[in-house]
């Protein structure tokens, strides 16, 4: 099953995603795909907090900040995979660290295609994204490009998904399918 979760920041997306992945996994393997590439102590602290949040849920963590299909080398595709988040993954792909964060436009399409392939390749995929499309700010061209690229990813994944849910204040707005919990 493919589940796509989006919504505003700190609204409960990750909590729902973790519970959902655990439910889908049942007695099987459950993987947490860590997408953040830490660059400073603030990032490392956030990662420590996230690890503590998942403590006791039985997740195996796979570090994969880019090239999402690579994580399949280290995991059993029959398991349940939680990818949190497409937003961070695209950021790493679009603005590669080793190119001094210069925008790599080809990466956006590749990232989208790889995410769809990844979702199809595993037994259960739960993918979290961020809804960043409803404000009255006139962004610079690079930020607009990032928003457009993430929206394309969101739409491709939503189309591919069995379940699409928006989370608002911890509540679920179901846009497609039915949640198994």
């Amino acid at each position: 099953m493919i589940c796509f979760i989006s919504g505003g920041a700190k609204n409960g997306k990750s909590t729902l995603a973790q519970n959902l992945t655990a439910a889908l996994a049942g007695g099987g393997k459950r993987y947490y795909i860590a997408t953040m590439i830490p660059v400073d102590e603030e990032d490392r602290e956030r990662i420590r907090r996230h690890i503590a949040d998942r403590d006791g849920m039985g997740f195996e963590t796979i570090e994969c900040g880019r090239g999402i299909l690579n994580c399949l080398d280290q995991a059993d595709p029959e398991g349940a995979f939680l990818l949190d988040s497409a937003t961070a993954l695209l950021m790493n792909e679009l603005f590669p660290l080793e190119k001094n964060y210069e925008m790599d436009l080809d990466a956006a399409q590749r990232c989208r295609e790889e995410l769809v392939r990844f979702a199809r390749s595993v037994r259960h995929a739960v993918i979290v994204s961020d809804y960043i499309y409803s404000d009255a700010v006139r962004y610079d061209a690079i930020t607009e490009q990032y928003r457009r690229s993430l929206a394309r990813i969101d739409r491709a994944l939503a189309e591919e998904s069995d379940v699409v849910v928006e989370v608002a204040a911890g509540q679920r707005i179901l846009h497609k399918g039915a949640l198994p919990l």
């Binding site: 505003g8 499309y133 409803s134 404000d135 009255a136 700010v137 006139r138």
Partner: peptide, 19 residues
């Protein structure tokens, strides 16, 4: 019509009135 209503209240006068 694009939903432009959910972000932080813009500092810019025109953007704020537009929203």
């Amino acid at each position: 019509c694009r939903d432009i209503f959910c972000g932080v209240v813009p500092v810019d006068d025109t953007c704020r009135e537009w929203r």
